[in-house]
């Protein structure tokens, strides 16, 4: 009896941390910027000074630091001042600006008839200026490839010893998916997040939303699902191969569908894609399939980032 109250009294007095051996906090390694700067400088000097003689003496190094800081602050302030001055002289937001509104007028007035989408933004990014969105989805894919190259475990970067970084010290860390609170809350929340994400995705052309928004929400749902349920269950739902195939098919579909539309449009042919009734789910011509493709790419990319950061493979 007195044991429990002793613990409570200790905690009240600030001596005892009830979460000490339960969560992943590790007090021996500090988080502070000074330590990190020192370690970084050590690592950088090790890499740089392999084989080359020491270039700067200590005093020179300190002088260089001082000059560097002064120049950095001065350049930042200069850039801030110049940009503020420029923006102050720009024409006012919302009024008849810019002078020529030919482009915006047509988007607003005939956007609904020409694209079939109530959400004009979705019409613009996936119909009028679809080429830019094609590039943007490939930007996401490129980022995923670069992160894969950097972080995926292979024979050269010797990270194959550790499947998941929670087991690095062979200390039993707090497995998130065995925690009852996160598991139960996840069971309720994750399906709701997925349903919301699919709703935002499918209603891209009728209301706010679209490929990027819906895809990000679904990606966030996948991440929370992994945290709540663990890797074994999640790998049965979406495995590495599935994610790869989904990304490839979505991007290929986007390239060829839009390539077909550009080809027929430029040569004056008719592309036989029905516009549908505005307001229905199946409307807007190609906007719905492209939204789904973009959403899939975004979701798989976000999930891929999380996996690469956490366990070293997608």
């Amino acid at each position: 009896m007195s044991n429990k109250f002793a613990k409570f009294r200790n905690w009240l007095a600030g001596d005892y941390d009830p979460l000490k051996n339960v969560l992943d906090t590790d007090e021996t390694v500090s988080d502070s910027r000074e330590e990190i700067k020192k370690e970084n400088r050590k690592i950088i000097s090790e890499v740089d000074a392999e084989g080359s003689t020491r270039r700067l003496e200590k005093a020179e190094q300190r002088g260089f630091d001082l000059v560097y800081r002064v120049i950095a602050i001065v350049s930042c302030l200069l850039l801030i001042g110049v940009l503020l001055f420029t923006v102050a002289l720009l024409p006012r937001y919302g009024v008849e600006n810019p002078e020529s509104t030919t482009v915006v007028k047509r988007y607003v007035e005939s956007g609904l008839q020409e694209t079939g989408a109530i959400n004009i933004v979705a019409g613009i990014i996936l119909d009028y200026r679809a080429f830019d969105t094609l590039g943007e989805s490939h930007v996401l894919f490129t980022a995923l490839i670069c992160v894969t190259i950097l972080l995926r475990a292979d024979s050269k970067n010797l990270r194959t010893k550790y499947e998941d970084f929670y087991t690095i010290k062979q200390v039993k860390y707090h497995d998130l998916n065995k925690d009852k609170i996160i598991n139960r809350v996840g069971m309720i929340l994750v399906p709701c997040i997925f349903v919301f994400g699919i709703y935002v995705l499918l209603n891209g052309q009728n209301g706010p939303g679209g490929g990027f928004s819906g895809g990000s929400v679904m990606g966030a749902g996948l991440i929370i699902g992994t945290a709540a349920f663990g890797y074994e269950k999640m790998d049965r739902f979406i495995s590495t191969k599935t994610a790869m195939w989904i990304t490839f098919i979505s991007l290929a579909f986007y390239s060829f569908a839009k390539g077909y539309v550009f080809f027929t449009g430029a040569n004056g042919l008719d592309n036989h894609i029905p516009k549908g009734i505005p307001g229905a789910i199946l409307s807007g011509g190609l906007i719905l399939p492209l939204d789904i493709a973009v959403g899939m790419v975004v979701a798989c990319t976000m999930y891929g980032f999380y996996n690469l950061f956490r366990r070293g493979r997608t």
Binding site: D24, D31, N119, V121, A122, F165, V200, P208, G209, G210, F212, S213, S216, V217, G219, A220, I223, M302, F305, Y306, F309, R310
Partner: peptide
């Protein structure tokens, strides 16, 4: 612009924050 708001909430406050925390862990 609600499209941007949904995306910013999911990506900025959610996913990129989580990725930063994972990096710190790593």
């Amino acid at each position: 612009s609600p499209d941007l708001a949904i995306t910013e909430a999911a990506v900025g406050a959610g996913i990129s924050g989580v990725l930063f925390l994972l990096t710190l862990r790593r």
